[in-house]
Design a protein around this nucleic acid. Structure first.
Lengths: 188, 188
DNA sequence: CGAGGCCTTGACCGCGGTCAATGCCCGTGG
DNA sequence: CCACGGGCATTGACCGCGGTCAAGGCCTCG
């Protein structure tokens, strides 16, 4: 179970086995149920998550009260409400489980202590930030150059698991289209 | 002249004077004229820039051939075509001077050598990435929650210098609206 | 078994994109 | 110095994508 975490960590930065043991020991487990809130709006994000099983998402509430999904994590992926996690200010983003899920998490304190002590962890954090930047960059490009239908087709090709496992309502907010429009797109 | 650079660096990471001297010595100067290309599409970005005077932007070309401005740097700000700079792959983004400009730049090689050697520079790079992420995050939020007019008003309030110094064509592509629409917005 | 949320479908409409015409500014060369 | 040309800004007419509102059916969960 922990080995999946180690594999992902080692994929991102070249940790040796001793480092992986040390790091894995800092992760704690967390079970949560479908629709359970892991981080509420206004709370400060003090954990960085690994999804062992299940799926979680981050989202914010727009001025009309609609949920806008920013980031979706399925099994074996990592992430958090990064803005609040970095700034340690109250978060505008929420984190929510989309399915019953088994998570591992490391606290902000341990995360940044590692960042002081372990050069491979600095490298890890740099790569997390670089990947987050690349992800956002691609999202912006999709938003400004693709139609609603093309954005849907892009996910269909590049990440079909999302379409199978995520509700239409959440998927629509992730693609920045209305549920009604998504429903029409799916039926051609 | 160099002191403005040092001030910005020290604002981002807590360098001491000796470190600032060492870093500043790695920056080289570059003059460029209005509309001059600093990085062309397909070239790999090997420099990180500081704008002493003038203004530059990064943009990419969409499938219809339109320029889409990603990032604008006025006097005393820093940046580059970050995706290519990080990956050292050919860039989809171009960099172009919008006015006659005086730049300083550090090479990719020196940048990442510092990143190995100087812990405050690691910190600097981390903060650059964090700020880049926050910037993108805000841009996505604006794109998905604000109308064209509201996006224009946001820049008008938060960064009025952009509207004064940047051509309507570029500003429009930065805001992701058509020049025609921007022209109509400006005249209420 | 009932209630509430989600999905789907229909009707309507408005924001902002597209195309076209005109005028202006500015840089360039004769 | 002026004449010309090209790019940019502006304005008008038109239109289509996708948002909004509403209604009905289905599934899930208490």
């Amino acid at each position: 179970m922990i080995s999946a975490l180690k594999e992902v960590l080692a994929y991102i930065s070249p940790f040796d086995d001793a480092e992986l043991d040390r790091i894995a020991a800092l992760f704690h487990s967390l079970q949560c149920r479908r629709n359970e809130q892991i981080l509420r709006e206004g709370e400060t994000c003090t954990a960085f998550y690994f999804v062992q099983k299940g799926s979680i998402r981050t989202y914010f509430i727009d001025k009309k009260g609609n949920e806008r999904t920013r980031y979706i994590m399925l099994d074996n992926w990592i992430g958090t409400a990064l803005t609040s996690f970095i700034s340690q200010q109250p978060s505008l983003e929420c984190i929510e489980a989309m399915e019953d899920s088994e998570l591992l998490f490391i606290s902000h304190k341990d995360f940044f202590e590692l960042n002081e002590q372990l050069s491979n962890w600095k490298r890890f954090y740099q790569r997390i930030l670089e990947m987050a930047y690349a992800f956002q960059n691609k999202k912006i490009e999709s938003l400004v150059t693709l139609s609603a239908k093309e954005r849907y087709q892009q996910v269909l090709e590049e990440n079909p698991a999302l379409i199978q496992r995520v509700s239409n309502k959440v998927l629509a907010s992730y693609l920045d289209i209305n549920p009604e429009t998504l429903s029409r797109l799916k039926s051609r």
